[in-house]
């Protein structure tokens, strides 16, 4: 603070004296003194209206020195972010900083920049985890859509390490979105098989997969019309039962269709026939004996139904 005041005072005096000199030289000493004094004091007064002489500056060099010398856990998220950026500035190939920052940005809705950083990290060396993060950022950027680019990232991640849950989940989702339920079921049940039973992802994937795979398929037949479109309420019942009949026939031919069994159970639940729904699940369960991934899906759907009888 004192240095600001002292320097300002010196400048003010010098300026005042410089302006007043011609007047003082002309013989009007007092007038000169008044002019110099007014300028100096006036400048000071005008400064102090809003001035904050005791507020020190914060050049970036000083700031970053402080961030570097502080324990990362003591920093706020935004300070950590800056520290990571600083690390990358100093070493643009710092994979750890690139990934950490990329992940942080992806989680704070800055996918575009996150994607750039993760791609940079991958250029240093391939890594399943980073590919998976990249894929996820791409999916978030495209509002949940697994684009071709995201799929490439997940596929590479899957090739490098099939035990990470996200690539399998999203690859399954992409297959599902294209209507390939068998492929989707394969991705999902495989990863559930591989994950330890206490992994939180296991239950999450099973729930989601059971929900998706048990939905009625796009159209009732070859005509491709959406189910229940333009139908009277009374007709819906009829259509559901027609669909159930078709499903039953299909499952007789091809009892290995997991999605078919799940859909059948769900449709029966909608027709308020819980006993038959359970029966379908039990049949499927015995059919898929020894395949824990598929069984997990069946259990997930079962618990989603929360059978009324068990409540009673």
């Amino acid at each position: 603070m004192m240095s600001v005041i002292a320097i300002s005072a010196l400048i003010a005096l010098a300026a005042g004296v410089y302006v007043a000199t011609p007047v003082a030289r002309d013989g009007a000493r007092v007038a000169g003194l008044v002019i110099a004094g007014l300028i100096a004091l006036g400048a000071f007064g005008a400064y102090l209206v809003n001035g904050e002489p005791d507020l020190s500056g914060q050049p970036y060099d000083v700031l970053i020195e402080r961030l570097r010398s502080t324990e990362p856990t003591q920093l706020t998220p935004i300070e950590q972010e800056e520290r990571l950026r600083d690390a990358i500035r100093n070493n643009p190939e710092d994979i750890r900083a690139l990934t950490l920052l990329g992940r942080f940005l992806a989680r704070t809705d800055r996918e575009l920049e996150a994607i750039g950083l993760l791609q940079r990290a991958l250029r240093q060396g391939e890594d399943a985890r980073i590919y998976s993060d990249l894929g996820e950022a791409l999916v978030n950027l495209n509002e949940g859509q697994v684009t071709a680019e995201a799929r490439r990232a997940f596929r590479r991640a899957y090739e490098l390490d099939p035990n990470i849950p996200e690539p399998s989940f999203f690859l399954g989702s992409a297959a599902y979105a294209e209507g390939d339920r068998a492929m989707a079921a394969t991705y999902w049940t495989d990863i559930i098989n591989r994950l330890p039973t206490d992994d939180p992802y296991r239950a999450a994937i099973a729930d989601r997969a059971a929900d998706l795979l048990s939905r009625p398929t796009g159209g009732p037949g070859a005509d491709g019309e959406a189910p229940f479109a333009n139908a009277e309420p009374g007709d819906i019942e009829a259509m559901i039962s027609a669909m159930v009949d078709r499903l039953e026939m299909r499952l007789d031919d091809d009892p290995g269709d997991l999605s078919g069994w799940l859909t059948l159970a769900r449709a029966r639940m909608m027709m308020e026939k819980p006993a038959e729904a359970r029966e379908a699940l039990e049949t499927a369960r015995s059919r898929f004996e020894g395949q824990p991934g598929k069984l997990a899906l069946i259990s997930a759907l079962e618990s989603a139904f929360a059978f009324e009888e068990t409540d009673a």
């Binding site: 600001v4 300026a15 006036g42 001035g51």
Partner: peptide
């Protein structure tokens, strides 16, 4: 500190302009 000196210099320039107006 630089910022505050800068702010002071603007105040000084203002006063110099006022002095310029009156003296001239």
């Amino acid at each position: 500190m630089i910022a505050e000196i800068g702010r002071f210099l603007i105040a000084l320039a203002l006063l110099a302009c006022v002095a310029q107006t009156i003296l001239a």
